[in-house]
C-alpha cells in the first residue's frame, strides 16, 4: 500500500549520519511509490539547507543531493524558521529583513514555521525521525 510519509531531520550534514540516512530512506521510499509529504529540517538539521557548503570533491555533497532530489521528485523541503535564524540560515526575504549582506538558502528548500512539522504529523500516515 502506498502511503504518505513525513520525514524529520534533526541534525546537520557531516557531523552526524542522520541526514545521509534520511536521504537514502527518502529515495528508497520514492522508488517504492510512496509519497513524501514533506521533509522538515529542525535543530541543526537546518544546516542541510545552506548552499554555501563546499565539501571536498571526493566527498558527497548532501545539500546538493537534497536539492537535486527535491527538483526531481518535487519534494517539499522545509527549514524551520526559528531554528534557521539561530543558526544563520536565511532566505532572501529574511536576509533583507535582518539587514544581512547575503542569503544562503539552497535551491529546493524553503523556510517556514514549526506549524509545518505539526501539519506533517497530522497529514502524513507515518512520521520518521532521523537525528543524533
Amino acid at each position: 500500500m502506498e502511503l504518505k510519509l513525513g520525514i524529520l531531520v534533526n541534525e546537520g550534514p557531516y557531523t552526524h549520519q542522520a541526514s545521509d540516512t534520511a536521504y537514502h530512506f527518502t529515495k528508497a521510499a520514492l522508488e517504492k511509490g510512496h509519497e513524501i509529504f514533506r521533509v522538515f529540517f529542525y535543530h541543526d538539521g537546518v544546516n542541510n539547507g545552506t548552499r554555501f557548503t563546499v565539501p571536498p570533491q571526493d566527498d558527497r555533497n548532501l545539500q546538493k543531493a537534497w536539492s537535486e532530489l527535491a527538483a526531481k521528485a518535487k519534494l517539499d523541503l522545509v527549514v524551520c524558521i526559528a531554528a534557521a535564524q539561530r543558526r544563520g540560515i536565511l532566505d532572501t526575504g529574511e536576509a533583507k529583513r535582518h539587514g544581512k549582506d547575503s542569503d544562503n538558502l539552497a535551491p529546493g528548500f524553503r523556510i517556514s514555521g514549526l506549524g509545518q512539522l505539526v501539519e506533517a504529523g497530522i497529514v502524513a500516515d507515518r512520521l520518521v525521525t532521523f537525528g543524533d
Binding site: 502511503l3 530512506f25 529515495k27 528508497a28 521510499a29 522508488e31 517504492k32 510512496h34 500516515d125 507515518r126
Partner: peptide, 14 residues
Amino acid sequence: YGGFVDLVTGHDRT
C-alpha cells in the same frame, strides 16, 4: 533502505 521503508509503513508508528 527499501526494507527500512517497508518496516516503517508496516508498523503503526515509529
